[in-house]
């Protein structure tokens, strides 16, 4: 049985054991029976938690392995935006310089 299948079965079992019907049934039993039932239920709940967390940890580790590529993509797109802004800034600067040159030439000629 795979871990995913085991988790699915334990979850289904936990839902049954935590249902109001089953809980009320055990509430009417003696203390020792109730303690044994709760111990079993606790093992199931902890195992459900553990397997659920393992699933997430597995995915989180695989996603984190892609962080480097995403960071490279972020840097690449940032550079593209900066290059575009720089190119337009250069055009504006040339325009301003030519404006000054024009005024100087006008004064000299």
């Amino acid at each position: 049985m795979t871990r995913d299948k085991l988790l699915a079965e334990l979850r289904a079992l936990e839902v049954k054991l935590r249902s109001p019907q089953v809980q009320l049934f055990f509430q009417a039993k003696d203390q020792e029976t109730r303690a044994r039932f709760v111990s079993l239920l606790n093992v199931i709940s902890v195992t459900v938690n553990r397997l659920s967390n393992d699933q997430l940890v597995g995915i989180a580790d695989q996603l984190t392995a892609l962080d480097g590529d995403l960071k490279a993509g972020i840097a690449n797109v940032k550079d593209a935006i900066k290059d575009l802004n720089d190119a337009i800034a250069v055009l504006n600067t040339i325009s301003s310089i030519l404006g000054i040159v024009g005024r100087v030439v006008g004064l000299v000629i």
């Binding site: 989180a60 962080d67 972020i74």
Partner: peptide, 28 residues
């Protein structure tokens, strides 16, 4: 039970850091 909660909090933090990168990438 609480130890599993603490593990979950750590994993969620790791996942959210990755999702923040993904969001930044799509945003750019």
């Amino acid at each position: 039970i609480s130890d599993e909660d603490k593990k979950l909090i750590k994993t969620i933090q790791q996942l959210r850091q990755h999702v923040a990168l993904l969001s930044r990438y799509f945003g750019l």
